[in-house]
Design a protein around this nucleic acid. Structure first.
Lengths: 190, 190
DNA sequence: TTCCGTTCTTGAACAAGATTAAGTTTTTTG
DNA sequence: CAAAAAACTTAATCTTGTTCAAGAACGGAA
């Protein structure tokens, strides 16, 4: 199951067999069942997580006491709180599995070691983060320039399988409106 | 004026005198006056821009014909379209000076060369991008969980000098509401 | 200084989506 | 299988922010 991680690396950088072995030796596999947490608000985040299979949500609690989902992570995505990880400060986020999942864990210390033994990994994460950043610029554009209904339809068109995978109230939170409103949208379509 | 760039590098990585000289040799200084463009919608972005002094806006045109400001860049920030730069595809964004500004230009080819001669630079950009990403997660949280008025007050509290620097209609666009509404907010405060 | 273009303000009518509070369906668990 | 918990729906009312349209103020250039 390290293969999916290596494949992802290979998509952006070239690494040799020796380096692959080093990586596999230092990365640890972990099963995370539905509703289990890999990071809780207030804890210091100590690892970067590569999702081999499954689905996670990252959320924070608002001042009105509700949970605001900021991002989802699925197969072949990284998920972590970079601020907490880098500064070793308590996180404001909670990361929870929303399906039975399998992840690969790269501990902070290990990751720093890997960066110095395989500098190409810095490049890999730089490229990954560039892509994430571009996606976030678009996300803000969508939030500002589409109605809730348009945003739901757009998301539905882009990731139809994903919409089936998570409860509707989570999708509503991620898309920035209430579950009641999502119900209304769906009612309109039939 | 290369000093501000080197100082920014030194904040995140350590580089020696020799490397600093290489960087200075390859980075070009440029004055960009108010309302001048460094990237226009449809063009391929061919450089990464470090703002030494001044202010830029990055926007795209919406289907209703208006300009949606996605981000600002000020002193000591990088601005570019990473998607267009990396893939060498036409950009959907326009980047325009909103003050008389001074920038340092790192051409794509030059940047790639610098990455291979000074691998630490990959690390620098990785860290920068991590920070940007964290900021964007918070930005989405603010957009979803604060009213327009709260968002304006919050932004005003965080960057009071900046609010004075740009026209109100640009600020309104960046914060995701109409100039008319911003006027109304300001009227309420007095 | 005057003129012109740009930016900012005000107000009325309207739309998108939140809130509240039931009620219904689905899923989980003992 | 029954009961409880979790997820989803519906509808009435209320808020936030938009749109449109007009006018006022400001800033820069001739």
């Amino acid at each position: 199951m390290h293969e999916s991680l290596l494949a992802h690396f290979r998509r952006y950088i070239s690494i040799n067999d020796h380096e692959e072995k080093i990586i596999c030796k230092h990365v640890t596999y972990r099963v995370v069942n539905n509703k289990e947490y890999i990071l809780k608000e207030g804890q210091v985040c100590h690892a970067n997580y590569f999702i081999v299979k499954g689905c996670f949500r990252m959320y924070l609690s608002t001042n009105t006491g509700t949970e605001q989902i900021i991002q989802f992570g699925i197969d072949n995505w990284w998920i972590t709180d970079y601020t907490s990880l880098e500064m070793q400060k308590p996180s404001i986020y909670t990361i929870q599995a929303v399906e039975n999942s399998e992840i690969l864990v790269i501990d902070k210390r290990i990751q720093e070691e890997l960066f110095s033994t395989i500098p190409q990994l810095e490049r890999y994460f730089r490229i990954i983060l560039q892509r994430i950043h571009s996606a976030y610029l678009m996300r803000i554009h969508y939030i500002y320039n589409m109605s809730g209904e348009e945003r739901y339809n757009h998301f539905n068109g882009m990731f139809p399988e994903f919409v089936q995978r998570v409860p509707q109230y989570m999708l509503a939170s991620y898309l920035g409106f209430t579950p009641e409103f999502l119900s209304k949208i769906r009612a309109r379509k039939s």
